[in-house]
């Protein structure tokens, strides 16, 4: 029944539509307007449900080989994703300058940037200059974190 990709995606989308509809029906009433806040969402929910049915029966034009990631690349992508999440997690805790410097350095190194010196220079110079530019000139305060300035 779920032998093609479109069928699997259609099922996923139908579940999404159903959840959205469920929350839409549970929105509180507001008595003073002719069209309440749930009208458009309910319409959208049913449209998505209908479209997922169309998708279920539509022909799969993409080929499996195209979708498959190059060998070993899944791990690379997941690692970069992990770096990014760590970066975001420590962004406010440790501060912009340090997290950004560490992220640029290790992410670039991991992806195969073997030139140490340029890597260190960029990793330090870029966050520092952006931090001071934003803080003093653009008046956007980036998180200072554990650094004293």
């Amino acid at each position: 029944m779920l032998n093609t990709l479109n069928k699997k995606l259609a099922l996923l989308l139908a579940i999404l539509a159903a959840c959205y509809l469920l929350f839409s029906f549970r929105l509180p009433d507001y008595p003073y307007v002719p069209v309440d806040s749930d009208a458009v969402p309910i319409t959208l929910g049913f449209i998505l449900l209908l479209l997922s049915i169309f998708l279920y029966f539509s022909k799969d034009e993409s080929k499996k080989e195209e979708r498959r990631l190059p060998k070993g690349e899944t791990q690379v992508i997941l690692s970069v994703l992990g770096f990014v999440i760590l970066y975001v997690f420590f962004f406010e805790i440790i501060g912009f300058v340090l997290t950004t410097a560490l992220f640029i350095f290790f992410n670039s190194l991991f992806l195969g940037f073997k030139k140490w010196l340029p890597n260190v220079i960029v990793s330090l110079a870029l966050p520092l200059s952006i931090y001071f530019l934003f803080d003093s000139f653009l008046q956007i305060s980036l998180p200072s974190g554990i650094l004293p300035f």
Binding site: F103, I104, G112
Partner: peptide, 16 residues
Amino acid sequence: VPRPLLISLVIVFCII
């Protein structure tokens, strides 16, 4: 800019 470094920079700029 070498690809690995460019990738890091694009991510950093999106976050900023």
